[in-house]
Design a protein around this nucleic acid. Structure first.
Length: 625
DNA sequence: CTAGGGTTAG
């Protein structure tokens, strides 16, 4: 069933079929208080047991201080409970800081605390520190257990170093620690993260062979990877298969597939899987609802999205920041800024804190409506609420300035941003380079491109497209062709968009013959012309006065299976009007109308001009509408 | 206590 040689598998799995993989966790609980005096410690005890899920930074620090000052001292287990809760909120720096404080207060960390520290370093991609904590664990005389190892193995996997993770499993076995289901699941996850799906599946088969029953955690990452690669159908197949083999799937696996169906636009299928899950007694959670709400909104079913949110509140499934962000984003995307603002107020009313993404989304909405002053006020608001703007925030406003033809203001903000320590990325530079190109300041655009390279922000295909377009529009076709040459020599994958820009540039520079040669060479270059390519080329031929050639290309386009759009028709119609080929333009207009397109602004302008100087009859206007 | 899922920009 599988080819062992190709598959990365720890040695123990190849050597010990039929062996058991379960091992009890070592008990390392050590008490400082001896458990005698319970009265004085009740406040932090209550706090730890009454729920510290999703604990905020200030709360965590305050609770920690109370604990450190309590006499007798709380047990390490109590500290571990706090650290675990904080780690779950992904505040790894905070956990590390608190652990440091604990040491400074001469409270000994135990084996578990050290595992939590290792996990924090792993999550922060500081594997070196993680391994030295492992060394410290040994030096303190603790036996590393499966938790210590699984944490480190996960750290390696998160960095994409799966082979080393497998080696570590082998070393762990040498140290007489038997890999358990969690370790193997971690490896499966590591393989999935590197998109090595077939190896992951093979490892799962090996697990089954040696009697280690996979669970929802085993299949979760596999399903997720399939879904993220756009393969919902395969994921659904695997899902049904696993379900059929009586592996108990959980809310996460269901939600993974539900989300993928939502992303594919199969909202009905997603909803029926949601119902199926609930029927089986698996309760949907905030992730499930958030996916469904997002999908409803993308279909324009706002009331349904809002209703789902109300449902979840009724069912005591508390919506979080992401849930509101999803809803707010959907409203912003369709320009319903008022509704977005209402939901923003609602989330504040419910005590759910907006985050950078919430503010970015609202800033984006304001910028789209050219309300730049309000966007800047929103920026001030987020700063005043202690929510740090990130590169996305700045990119959105800079883009807003560029679209409002205020590239210089965009540049000022860019400099301010850099002073505040936020580092520009490729999108930032692309936006500004485009802004300068469109305002005709080609030299500034070129300088910025140089700055981008020297700052280590990698230009991508979009950067080049923006630059090529700018050069072509500003009469520097030769320079554009030089860059195109460089791009051919680089490893960059050129798409049809790049060629559309160049062909368009050639046509604008009245080099229609060159454009035609390039157009004809596209198949050789492995690039397929799209509707824009044909339209640009048709426009070029029209400009040259070769209406008949343009007509032939229009015909060929249809034969090549590319459907013309409104731009194609309007280009041809204008050319025929200019060439006084009235009857042909009437023919084209009727065909265009049959396709559901209509005359654009430029076409209407020509028609008006021709009506006023009498070259066209009034009946033409009726036919047009 | 260690492994899998949902939101933003050119």
């Amino acid at each position: 069933m599988l080819c062992r040689r190709l598959v990365l598998v720890p040695r123990i799995l190849l050597l010990s079929p039929g062996g058991t993989l379960t091992t009890p966790l070592l008990s390392c609980e050590r008490s400082f208080s001896g458990g005698s005096d319970r009265r004085k410690v009740s406040s932090y005890k209550d706090r730890l047991s009454s729920g510290i899920v999703g604990i905020k930074k200030d709360d965590a620090v305050a609770l920690f201080q109370t604990m450190v000052r309590s006499r007798p001292l709380p047990t390490v287990i109590d500290f571990n409970k706090l650290f675990t809760a904080v780690a779950k909120t992904k505040q790894y720096d905070l956990v590390l800081g608190l652990c440091k404080q604990m040491e400074l207060n001469r409270i000994a960390l135990d084996n578990y605390t050290l595992s939590i520290v290792i996990n924090c370093f792993c999550r922060r991609r500081q594997l070196g520190f993680a391994f030295s904590v492992m060394g410290k664990t040994l030096k303190l005389g603790y036996e590393p257990n499966t938790v210590t190892f699984s944490t480190l193995i996960n750290g390696l996997c998160l960095q994409g170093r799966v082979s080393e993770a497998v080696e570590l499993v082998d070393r762990m076995v040498e140290m007489k620690v038997i890999p358990d289901l969690i370790i193997l699941n971690t490896l499966v996850n590591g393989l999935c993260l590197r998109d090595r799906l077939s190896e992951a599946m093979a490892l799962i088969d090996r697990m089954v062979d040696i009697g280690c029953q996979p669970d929802a955690f085993t299949y979760g990452p596999v399903l997720n990877r399939m879904c993220k690669s756009g393969n919902t159908a395969s994921a659904l197949d695997l899902f049904r298969n696993v379900e059929h083999r009586k592996v108990k799937l959980d809310v996460v696996t269901y939600t993974t597939v539900i989300d993928s169906l939502c992303k594919d636009g199969s909202l009905d299928d997603a909803l029926s899987l949601f119902n199926e899950m609930e029927t089986k007694g698996i309760k949907a959670d905030v992730f499930t609802y958030t996916s469904l709400i997002g999908s409803c909104c993308s279909f324009g079913k706002w009331e349904d999205g809002a209703q789902l949110l109300r449902d979840m509140i009724t069912r005591k499934i508390t919506p979080d920041t992401v849930t509101f962000n999803t809803l707010i984003d959907s409203f912003v995307k369709v320009g319903k800024l008022t509704e977005a603002k209402e939901w923003f107020d609602e989330m504040i009313k419910r005590g759910i804190g907006p985050d950078t993404i919430t503010y970015n989304t609202l800033v984006y909405g304001l910028c789209m409506e050219n309300r730049l002053d309000e966007a800047n006020q929103m920026l001030d608001l987020m700063v005043s609420k202690g929510c740090d703007p990130d590169i996305m925030t700045f990119n959105i406003i800079i883009n807003g300035y560029c679209m409002a033809k205020r590239v210089d203001d965009g540049m000022t903000l860019f400099r301010k941003m850099s002073m505040s320590g936020v580092v520009a990325n490729t999108v930032t530079y692309n936006t500004l380079i485009q802004g300068f190109c469109e305002s005709g300041k080609l030299n500034v655009a070129k300088e910025l491109f140089q700055e981008m390279v020297s700052q280590g922000a990698h230009p991508n295909i979009v950067t080049y497209k923006v630059l090529l377009d700018g050069l072509c529009d500003n009469g520097e076709l030769e320079k554009a062709l030089e860059i195109l040459d460089q791009m051919h020599n680089s490893k960059m994958e050129l798409d049809i968009g790049v060629y559309n820009i160049i062909i368009h540039g050639m046509c604008s520079a009245s080099k229609v013959a060159d454009a035609w040669d390039l157009f004809c060479s596209l198949p050789l270059r492995g690039v397929k012309p799209d509707v824009k390519t044909y339209t640009i080329m048709i426009g070029g031929l029209c400009k040259k006065g070769s209406l008949s050639e343009a007509g032939l290309l229009f015909k060929k386009m249809g034969e090549d299976g590319i459907a013309p759009n409104d731009c194609t028709y309007n280009t041809l119609i204008r050319a025929h009007l200019r060439g006084s080929e009235i009857s042909k333009s009437v023919e084209l207009i009727e065909e265009m109308k049959r396709c559901g397109f209509s005359a654009d602004v430029s076409t209407i302008k020509i028609v008006m001009d021709m009506l006023s100087d009498g070259r066209l009859d009034k009946s033409f206007l009726d036919m047009l509408s």
